[in-house]
Design a binder for these strands. Structure first.
Lengths: 189, 189
DNA sequence: CTAGTCTTCCTAAGGTCCATAGGCAAATGC
DNA sequence: GCATTTGCCTATGGACCTTAGGAAGACTAG
C-alpha cells in the first residue's frame, strides 16, 4: 500500500483549516481520513483519539493567537496597547472562527500548563502596566479584560448583535474607550 | 404496551436536568429514552429531532434566566440594579451550567424572535436608564455589559480563573465596580 | 545485500448515536 | 361500540469512534 504521508502536523493543520471552514465541532476523524484518502482506523497510528486531535488544534490556536497578539502589542503601551491587543484578538477570532472555538475548549491541567495560555495572561498583565494597578486589582482587571474580549467576540460570532443596526465595529471601539476609562479610574479596594 | 407518559414538556425538563448534570453536549436522544424507559425511536413522536430537543432546552433556559434576572432587578435602579442583574445572571449560570450552555446556543432567526432574548435586551436597557446614556452609546453599553457578563461566566465555568489564588467572587465585585464607574464616566461620542 | 524491526496502512468488528418506515395496541372521540 | 388518533414498538441504515490483528513498505544493523 502506497503511503499517504500522514503526519501529526499535517493532520493538525488540516483539522484547523477544516474547523475554520465547517466549525470546530464538525472536525471528525472520519472527515480527516476522507481528506487524506485513508481509512479512519489508519489515523490512530498518529493520534490517540478524537479528543487528542482536538487538543492539538487547541494548542495550535492558542499559540497562533498569542503570536498575533504579541506582534500587535510590541512597542505599544497604555491605551494604544489595549486597542492593539483587542484588535488582534478579535481579528483572529473572525479570521479563524473554528480555531478560536478550539482555543476556548477546556484543557486538562497539565495540557493547559504547556499551552500558550500563560503567555496570554502575561501579555494582558503587560498591557495593564501603564495603568499602574496594585494587586489584587491587577488580577481583577486581567479577568475583566479577558471577559470583555472573549464575551464580545463570542456574542458577535453567535450573531447576538445582528438584531440591531448599530455598527458592531463602532460598538467595539466605544467599548475599548470605556475600558480604558475604567482602567484609568479603577476603583481601588 | 403500557404507555410511559412521555410528553414534550417532561422531555424538555429531563433534558435540562441532564444538561446540568453531565453537560449540554451530552444531552442525547438515546440517554433520554433510557431515562424514560422507552426506545429511542419512540421519542420521535414527541420531538422532531435532536436539534429540536436542544432548541427547547435553550428556550426554557432563556426564559428561566430572564425570570430570575427580572425578579432580581425589580424595584432597583443604578448600580444596585446592575449588581442585582449581574448576580442573578452569574448565579443562574453556576446553578444550571448545562442550561446556561443551552442558552448560548445559536438559534435560527424566527426561533430567536419568539425566545426570551428580547426580554434580556430590554432588561439590560432598563439598567442603563439611570446612567442616562444617549444612543448609540446605550447600545454600545448594552453590548459591553452582555460581553462582560457572558465572558466572565464563560471563562469562570471553563476554569480559566483557577490558575490564580485571587477569589473569583471578589474579582467579580471589583469588575462590577469598574463597570459602574465606566458607565458613569462613559466617553460620549 | 539481507534480515529484522518499526511504521503506516489495511480489513474486520463492535459500540454509540440519530433518524425513518411501518405496524400494533391503547387512548380518545363521536 | 367503532373509527381515529396517538404512543410505543421492531427493523433497518447511516455516521462516527475505537480496538485488534495483519500485511507491506521503509528504515537499520550486521
Amino acid at each position: 500500500m502506497a503511503r499517504a504521508g500522514v503526519t501529526v502536523e499535517r493532520l493538525t493543520r488540516a483539522a484547523a483549516e477544516l474547523a475554520d471552514e465547517v466549525g470546530f465541532d464538525k472536525v471528525t476523524v472520519a472527515a480527516l481520513a476522507r481528506q487524506f484518502g485513508v481509512k479512519e482506523a489508519s489515523l490512530y497510528s498518529h493520534i490517540r483519539n478524537a479528543h487528542d486531535l482536538k487538543t492539538r488544534v487547541t494548542l495550535l490556536a492558542l499559540a497562533e493567537l498569542a503570536d498575533d497578539v504579541a506582534a500587535a502589542v510590541a512597542g505599544r503601551a497604555g491605551k494604544d496597547a489595549l486597542v492593539a491587543f483587542a484588535g488582534a484578538y478579535r481579528d483572529y477570532a473572525k479570521r479563524h472562527p473554528g480555531r478560536y472555538a478550539a482555543a476556548r475548549m477546556e484543557l486538562d491541567r497539565e495540557t493547559a500548563l504547556r499551552s500558550a495560555g500563560g503567555r496570554h495572561a502575561e501579555m494582558t498583565r503587560a498591557i495593564l502596566r501603564a495603568y499602574e494597578l496594585p494587586e489584587p486589582d491587577q488580577t481583577d482587571a486581567v479577568r475583566m479584560l479577558g471577559a470583555v474580549f472573549h464575551g464580545y467576540v463570542s456574542l458577535e460570532t453567535a450573531g447576538a448583535f445582528q438584531h440591531h443596526p448599530r455598527d458592531v465595529d463602532a460598538s467595539w471601539a466605544s467599548t475599548l474607550d470605556a475600558l480604558d476609562s475604567a482602567l484609568r479610574n479603577w476603583p481601588r479596594s
